[in-house]
Design a binder for these strands. Structure first.
Lengths: 214, 214
DNA sequence: GACCAAATAGGTATTTTTTCCTATGGCTAT
DNA sequence: ATAGCCATAGGAAAAAATACCTATTTGGTC
């Protein structure tokens, strides 16, 4: 439930983040310095005052903060499904570029402008879930404690790594090879064993792994 | 730059998403059905009208949409650093639970209420970057085309997988063992080779891998 | 085509937020 | 001690958004 307090609190956090008072932040945004006064957040009649979207936009635009990041400062602070799907821009470099000079400073921080970008996590699936691995049966791809992010709605293609739940209840991680005649051909994750056919009837469901934590 | 058009457009997208007109959405939120009329988004004097945060909150709260997800509908549609850090809640299950009945429907979608939650990606590092793998030198952990998300500011502990850039420019993925006397002990990713010592002087930087795409 | 409900345009009154202004207190520099 | 600046409270005026209302248009059903 988004409330006016949520928005005021987020504005205060934003000011604090830039080491400003709320009046300095208002002033910098071209608003009257008294605009965000605590004394004006509730009327004499006890009625809540909501900062306008125009004032908010002026502040965000002046400070260079995105609307999405501002929304994250509100009390309900986790990103929702949509932001999960759209993801955050993360600088991307190919391995061959990484070998060259000019892409990192001495701490390994990205520098320069020739970086691409990808969206992370970028998983458009409302039914996505995480599976925490136990044991060492799936080493080295999946270690004890690693978390595999699994997307049941994702299309599965050759080479994709998948989680399978068998009718027996067993849960396996495999590499998908192909479908053939009521069977699915699966490879072990370390791929040094020939593919093995599993009858579809033995499988409850199969879903693609999209990310693995490290 | 957040503009009033951004916000209006996002409200229209929201209405469309729920298969409603903007007047139906306003009505459902307890607002006057004419509140979001296109004809009222600009005054006769040409001045832009901004929907109030109060009206917006009423709509979001009625539709059960988070402020963060609404922000994602605006034109600047990528999540920022903060949402990247805080992550989205993803249902989490332990492998042992996954073997039981009652956690998945027949399509592999999560059901039931005994799921934990984790935040994904949950990487609090402004200098995070992605490295796209080429070749098969790091199989099976890192395949050709996989993307490793690398966090230069993350603390590195025993067993963590890291990207190392050598002074020669070579870029390696290894498993961190320990530090000892001006050297770092590193294991191969597939861990069937004894750890090998690299002089720190040979290394430009070393940074932890936090996620790997699949 | 007729009918009805919803959507939309547009005007006015009401409510709400910002602006403008004043006052007070705190902090810093001279 | 004094001056200047900033932060905050508070009041009144101005500006802006919503509520209320009316009229027209649009879309769906029979």
């Amino acid at each position: 439930m988004l409330s006016h307090q949520d928005i005021w609190a987020a504005l205060d956090k934003l000011a604090a983040r830039f080491s400003m008072s709320s009046s300095a932040m208002a002033r910098q945004a071209g608003l009257d310095p008294t605009t965000f006064n605590k004394s004006k957040r509730r009327g004499n009649d006890g009625k809540d005052r909501w900062p306008s979207t125009e004032s908010l936009a002026k502040v965000l635009n002046t400070l260079g903060v995105s609307f999405a990041d501002f929304a994250m400062l509100t009390a309900q602070s986790q990103a929702g499904r949509l932001s999960f799907a759209m993801g955050a821009n993360v600088p991307l470099l190919r391995l061959s570029q990484a070998r060259e000079d000019g892409f990192f400073d001495t701490s390994g921080f990205p520098v320069g402008e020739d970086w691409d970008e990808i969206r992370v996590p970028g998983v458009s699936d409302d039914n996505v879930f995480a599976l925490q691995i136990a044991g060492d049966a799936m080493l080295p791809v999946l270690r004890d404690g690693d978390r595999a992010i699994v997307s049941p709605n994702a299309n599965i293609r050759r080479g994709d790594r998948v989680i399978i739940k068998a009718q027996t209840g067993e849960v396996l991680a495999k590499s998908f090879d192909k479908m053939s005649a009521g069977r699915v051909q699966l490879l072990s994750l370390n791929e040094n064993i020939p593919s093995r056919a599993f009858p579809l009837a033995d499988i409850q469901w199969m879903a693609k792994i999209v990310w693995i934590s490290q």
